[in-house]
């Protein structure tokens, strides 16, 4: 039987699929359960600030409060792939219409994005 399995490898067992699905859904649910109340507001404010410099949609930013051991970790992920940079002069916000927009290249993953 084992030999047969080697020759014709089985599909992933349903128990393995169950385990992987549970791990993903629970990681997500635990994060949102433990999230402090200020997180959604902070996410909106961050979006406003970043939006002054880069054209960005609300689904391009993700804010998470995680924990690893004794360390609390505030994780802010901003996806800039294909976003349009607004021109900024002397710290003042440029006019979106007159700005010479620069496209951000679709390059490799941002350095802060750890492969999962």
């Amino acid at each position: 039987m084992r030999l047969l399995n080697l020759i014709f490898p089985e599909r992933r067992s349903s128990a393995v699929i169950a385990r992987e699905r549970l791990k993903i859904v629970l990681a997500h649910e635990r994060a949102s359960r433990e999230a402090p109340d200020f997180l959604p507001v902070m996410q909106k404010e961050l979006l406003d600030v970043i939006g002054r410099y880069v054209e960005i949609r609300s689904d391009m930013i993700r804010v998470n409060l995680g924990r690893s051991g004794d360390t609390s970790l505030l994780e802010i992920n901003v996806e800039l792939d294909g976003a349009t940079v607004k021109q900024v002069k002397n710290g003042a916000v440029g006019d979106a219409k007159s700005a010479t927009a620069t496209r951000i290249d679709r390059g490799s993953a941002a350095p802060w994005v750890r492969p999962s």
């Binding site: 128990a15 169950a18 385990r19 629970l26």
Partner: peptide, 16 residues
């Protein structure tokens, strides 16, 4: 059923 891969094993549930 755990042996056949049809049911979560105690180790899996315990780990999760």
């Amino acid at each position: 059923r755990v042996r056949k891969g049809e049911m979560l094993a105690v180790e899996d549930v315990n780990e999760i």
